[in-house]
Nucleic acid binder design. Structure first.
Length: 556
RNA sequence: GCCAGGGUAGCUCAGCGGUAGAGCAGGGGACUCAUAAGCCCUUGGUCGGGAGUUCGAUUCUCCCCUCUGGCACCA
């Protein structure tokens, strides 16, 4: 039995409604999780929301509700969307969860109590006073970056005052108290993982980008905010003294531990705790973190591994990052632009799902982008890909296959004892494509995997025309050949539905129901022999992917 | 300025040493089991520009232009 598969997504900030980028990441992780399950792996899929921070606090004030009420409302929107899109997680991470607060504080305590021998100083965390210019309006310290061309701070920052503030810092760079250099350790880790062909970051072209960032790393990470400035967060443990709230990363990133299977924050020994039968933290850890390219540097690629290192995780317990790209929006002039509220081009996945259905949205998001790259979002292409690949392609194949099987054989094609060369070759190609499919999916290349599915469908549709079952049915001497054609088509449809199972689970399952067959068992063996169950009888056809009819474009 | 990833048919992209491929869109044809779907054939490209290495470059090297990220710097 291989190691259980633990997959997470970034947790979304509950400051506004979900957009297509949020949906893409969750569907991607969901598809990978479902695929692993399909292979027979034990899977734990974690997703959730990041609910703390200044912006939430402000949005809540604006809305005239408490921060908790505010995030509960936004969180509900996310959960409803995942429900609608068929994103099924095993655990839901919410940073306002009592369990999480406990875990964050336990981690901070652990680091605070990790003292330099013979002293009272923590090896990892220290307190420092920062003095500088502070924008009251933006509630942040300003750096020279924020100065205008005249060297002054612009009106958007005013009023600006000089202020000093005490905060806690987490070491990222070498220090005598540490006894080693985290930066060098991380560089070595990245290199070693690449050498072992288990890259720390996927796709591999991101590795260099991260390495670069690590090499330039300087300064430590501020992990607190004075409670006077930020109320909506997790208070530091008492041993740190009064008046500090956890600042973003030691809160948000920790969710991966809090909600990991088998984790119990009340025990300090993570590796041996058991929350519910069969769930051991050490069995599942480390995770595959599915994240967007915007939070690879520095959060997930730099802070997180060093945090884990500080918390006592071994090098073997460092996670892998799967970094995906962005969906850009095509501007009116055809140019590609970033999605942003100010441009008014935000795509609402909720509306999209209502309009076209979850299957169409999921299929589009998985098939029209290469994992890791950016893509241009287009509703037109969504409709096109759905109609061409699913409705006209697979859907129609299933429909015509079942119709012919019922019409010519009352749903019971005779078993094929011997397949002649053509059909054996056809099924062998199917098997070949299944192998490619598994390989592609294993590498999170969902788009490529779906291309294999399309190939299977296309070849089957071509077989219908080249063999013309309607002619075979009129000739008693061709009876065996007709059975072979129908059998080959049924098996092809079964395989295509199997390949679609993780992307559009319900529709694929419906196809298999109509075929009255189970999914093909995914393996690296070739199922070249085709046999239907002894008393096989196919079900009734009913279009699974009805065509999306768009109003004709205005021509004048 | 530095690092990385792009710039290939109308569109989306693949290829990455032997003078170009797929899908969609466009055009033509034969068929009828089917969701007026499907099948077959087909028109499209001086592979961003320039130089070099090579018998030969879209594919390697260098320079330039341009787009996208990231980092830095000036102000």
């Amino acid at each position: 039995m291989s190691k259980p598969f633990f997959i997470t997504t970034a947790i979304d900030y509950t400051n506004g409604a979900p957009h297509i980028g949020h949906a893409y990441e969750k569907v991607l992780a969901d598809v990978i999780a479902r695929f692993e399950r399909q292979k027979g792996e034990k899977v734990f899929f974690l997703t959730g929301v990041d609910q703390h921070g200044q912006k939430v606090q402000q949005s809540a004030e604006k809305a005239g509700v408490s921060p908790q009420e505010y995030v509960d409302g936004v969180t509900a929107k996310f959960r409803a969307l995942w429900e609608k899109l068929g994103v099924r997680c095993d655990a839901w991470a919410a940073t306002t969860d009592a369990l999480h607060k406990e875990c964050v504080r336990a981690n901070l305590r652990m680091l605070w109590d990790d003292k330099v021998p013979g002293t009272d100083r923590s090896r990892w965390i220290y307190k420092k006073t920062q003095r500088g210019f502070y924008s009251v309006r933006q509630e942040q310290f300003l750096t020279d970056k924020e100065r205008g061309p005249d060297g002054e701070f612009g009106p958007e920052w005013q009023p600006v005052e000089e202020r000093e503030e005490e905060n806690f810092y987490f070491r990222l760079t070498a220090h005598p108290d540490l006894g080693f250099d985290p930066k060098q350790w991380l560089l070595d880790l990245i290199d070693r993982r690449s050498e072992e062909l288990k890259p720390f970051v996927l796709p591999v072209f991101r590795v260099a980008e991260l390495r670069n960032a690590v090499e330039k790393l300087e300064g430590d990470l501020c992990i607190s905010r004075p409670a006077a400035r930020l109320q909506w967060g997790i208070p530091f443990p008492e041993s740190f003294g009064e008046g500090f709230v956890t600042y973003v990363w030691f809160d948000a990133l920790v969710n991966y531990i809090t909600f990991a299977p088998g984790h119990d924050p009340h025990y300090s020994e993570r590796s041996s705790t058991e929350k519910s039968p069969g769930l051991y933290f050490s069995d599942y850890w480390p995770a595959l973190h599915v994240i967007g390219k915007d939070i690879m540097i520095p959060a997930h690629g730099v802070y997180w591994p060093i945090m884990l290192k500080a918390l006592g995780f071994s090098d073997e317990e460092m996670p892998t990052l799967l970094v995906h790209g962005w969906w850009n929006i095509r501007g009116k002039g055809g140019e590609s632009e970033k999605m942003s509220k100010s441009l008014g081009n935000v795509v609402d996945p909720d509306v999209l799902a209502d309009k076209y259905g979850a299957a169409a949205v999921r299929y589009y998001l998985m098939s029209d982008i290469a994992t890791g790259r950016d893509a241009d979002f287009s509703e037109e292409r969504l409709v096109q890909r759905y109609n061409v690949d699913l409705a006209n392609g697979l859907g129609n194949l299933v429909n015509r296959t079942l119709n012919m099987t019922r019409k010519y054989r009352e749903g019971r094609p005779h078993p094929m004892e011997v397949l002649d060369g053509d059909f054996a070759q056809h099924l062998d190609s199917n098997s070949e494509e299944m192998l490619h499919f598994v390989t592609d999916m294993d590498q999170a290349q969902i788009q490529k995997g779906l291309e294999q599915m399309i190939s299977v469908v296309n070849r089957a549709n071509a077989l219908v025309d080249s063999s013309a079952p309607w002619k075979l049915a009129k000739d008693p001497e061709q009876s065996d050949r007709l059975d072979a054609v129908l059998g080959t088509l049924i098996q092809s449809a079964q395989l295509a539905a199997t390949m679609l199972l993780s992307v559009t689970p319900e529709a694929a399952a419906e196809i298999l129901r109509q075929l009255n067959l189970p999914p093909v068992v995914l393996s690296d063996k070739r199922p070249v022999t085709f046999t239907l169950p002894p008393d096989y009888c196919c079900g009734e056809p009913k279009p699974v992917f009805p065509r999306i009819e768009l109003p004709a474009p205005e021509t004048n």
